[in-house]
Design a binder for these strands. Structure first.
Lengths: 366, 366
DNA sequence: GCCGCGCTTGAATCACGCT
DNA sequence: GAGCGTGATTCAAGCGCGG
């Protein structure tokens, strides 16, 4: 099989080590791997209200000892290394049960760690017995195949995702719950489905549109869904046919938005102009005296001044500053204020006007 | 040297492996270790006898470095294991450069990880070149010497420190800056001085007053300062005489507050005396033959026997055992059974009688 | 339609001391 | 050291229901 025969945008059913060995070498740009954690749970766990916790006891998470887990880890990481392009990078997620062993083996196989990232869960499961600290995070390792090689890092896209400040190594995101969690007959389809927001940061930060993303432990297919959503190619490998079916249906339902007006198109365009809110007033798209609505609320409103700042309950400041006061937290005003679109008769986010402005000046420049 | 000759509240100048080997075994309750990790700059610290071979290729050199670091790590962790009591625990702090190797070796030496904690820095150094995520955290591993052994975790003290909710594995604390940072002639006395708030959580969570805390990489002495402040004994080991002098002066200046009115004192529900249900019958507060009501229900009832156990539908057992049968789940009987208070004409929880009993024996003891 | 309340649930290495 | 009896212990979200 040569590089041209790479099976793109498909799920390959089978053992990930064997399947990867059958793929052409140096052919994928990114690997995201969510391997078994080797949790080693013993006995039952009860909540204080006398209900039982439905823990992870899947067959795929059973290993006899550390040596077997290490051998397995070394094998699949070696296979990953072979299919990665020399400029490629790999992400691996885990908890203290396995991530220290994975990190050591990554280093031993000459991967070069670029960052470790902690996914801080806003809604972790508590420690019901009060005998340890609440396990409220998981760890992601990001490593490049070859130390010193060129790699993709979309600094500006990450900065925009983080309110205009550099993205840090701590990511606060909720667990995968609610509508996003896939259920079959009311039961969770996969015991460890990851949130799409997590994969969104992974894929957006370290690939470009059109790149190939491989996930050797595909599970419910979150990696494929987000890759498709962000206009990346994807390859999934999954042993369990039931998971394959679930992931296929899930990804088929994804309708990617147009590439050009999403963060997904943001490569390292460090020169992307920042837009002053005043520009929108100067364009006449918003007018002094006009009302803006915070988070689409009918009650929280502000008035635009001729200087392009907001007035709200005696408070005057930028869209970010006023938003910050209302939220009592850091605030990217572009993402919180809405204006009344009279033609449509509905509220629209002002961020759409920023995008429109950027398209205009971009068109003028070409 | 036997346990009685443990050199408490002192700094021992020397190589930590040798010094620990000279201490009595199974003698300390807690170890906090902040080991060096930068191989290239600090290699001499852990391989005094090694000579570097010129002309080796990168791969060999690279392997040699990891192997040497691992050997050093295994040596000092083995020495730690020897001096720890069987009920003892150890904390190790590091970054992605070393913590994955440390974690693996900890596990290989049969330490049992209790938690990994991420110290999220509220004021990290930015990534000036914009080529990675801002490195905004460090990792602490907390492990016990022997899996399944009893260990100290002051759950309630931690909960109080965290606004009444259980403490999580993510700790947001600033770096050591400002007045706390020790300076000599305007320069940092130690390049990696840890904040006292970090050690406060470590020591408070996992030791009791009077326990012995050992720090094999004592540096500027933060561990000793916080241990003294919280009425724990401490032992510091440090190679560099300049650091020893700084730490000694620093700790001498610490004035511990009274123990009793701080979180540093140690009391919780787990350690108060257990009450046998029979005691309430002996006191005459409940009588053989009397009826108890489960969860205040009128239907589920039980009869007290002279032996202080319950009879319920042919079932006989303790308040916990019978409750367990009724609930089909683990049950703390104190919180589920009610008795009829004839004077008040209403049902009252039997836990109130336990509280009354505890007050009586507490008053009698003083 | 909105609000508030109650129920459910989650990658979890989840007790401890006395006999 | 094993067995056994006592008894300590939960947070954020989503969802459904009733007012």
């Amino acid at each position: 099989m040569d590089a041209s025969s790479l099976p793109l945008d498909r799920i390959l059913q089978g053992d990930c080590i064997e399947v990867m060995q059958s793929l052409p070498e140096k052919s994928v740009d990114l690997i995201f791997a969510d391997p078994p954690y080797n949790l080693q749970l013993e006995g039952e766990l009860w909540r204080p209200n006398q209900t039982r916790v439905d823990g992870v006891d899947d067959e795929w998470d059973h290993f006899t000892d550390f040596a077997e887990y290490d051998r397995f880890t070394r094998q699949w990481l070696t296979a990953c290394r072979r299919v990665l392009k020399d400029t490629g990078t790999i992400w691996v997620i885990g908890t203290y049960h396995n991530i220290y062993r994975v990190g050591t083996i990554l280093m031993d196989l000459d991967f070069w760690i670029l960052n470790d990232i902690v996914w801080i869960k806003t809604n972790p499961m508590p420690n019901f017995r009060g005998v340890r600290f609440t396990n409220a995070h998981e760890t992601l390792l990001w490593a490049q195949k070859i130390k010193g090689a060129r790699y993709t890092f979309n600094y500006q896209a990450m900065k925009l995702l983080n309110d205009g400040k550099q993205m840090r190594s701590d990511w606060q995101l909720p667990r995968c719950v609610g509508k996003e969690r896939i259920r079959v007959n009311g039961l969770k389809a996969h015991s460890t489905q990851k949130p799409e927001a997590l994969l969104y940061r992974v894929i957006l930060s370290s690939t470009r549109p059109g790149d190939v993303v491989l996930d050797p432990f595909f599970g419910s297919g979150t990696t494929g869904a987000v890759a498709k959503q962000t206009h990346r190619h994807w390859i999934g490998i999954e042993r369990n046919p039931a998971y394959v079916a679930i992931a296929e249906a899930r990804i088929a339902a994804v309708q990617p938005p147009p590439l050009h007006d999403s963060l997904a198109s943001w490569e390292n365009r460090r020169t992307r102009p920042r837009v002053s809110f005043l520009k929108l007033v100067e364009k006449g798209w918003l007018k002094p005296g006009q009302t803006l609505y915070f988070d689409s609320s009918a009650r929280l409103t502000a008035t635009i001044t001729p200087e392009g700042v907001l007035q709200c309950n005696g408070l005057t400041g930028s869209i970010h500053q006023v938003g910050r006061e209302l939220l009592h937290a850091p605030c990217n005003g572009w993402l919180h204020w809405y204006y009344l679109d009279e033609a449509a008769g509905e509220k629209r986010p002002i961020d759409e006007l920023r995008e429109r402005y950027l398209r205009e000046i971009s068109a003028a420049g070409t």
